[in-house]
């Protein structure tokens, strides 16, 4: 278990000061964003019934 009530640990890098907890959350957000863009969507290779006329539609 991680104690949420204890003293915070900080990263000091030049003028940037950030807690490890916040830095980890930001890193996880960037990872989740890239994963959402890059990873194939489940079932994306499977044609959907009635979807033929919109599959080639251009992005607006």
């Amino acid at each position: 278990m991680v104690s949420l009530g204890g003293a915070q640990h900080y990263i000091h890098w030049h003028f940037i000061v950030i807690t490890w907890a916040n830095a980890i959350v930001i890193a996880l957000m960037v990872l989740a964003f890239v994963a959402a863009l890059v990873l194939p969507y489940p079932g994306s290779g499977r044609p959907v019934q009635g979807d033929e006329d919109v599959r080639q539609e251009e992005r607006p």
Binding site: A36, L37, G43, S44, V48, V54
Partner: peptide, 15 residues
Amino acid sequence: PDRLPAYVRSAVYLL
């Protein structure tokens, strides 16, 4: 809608 454009098949659209 019961049909969506192909580009919507991305996890980005789940956010």
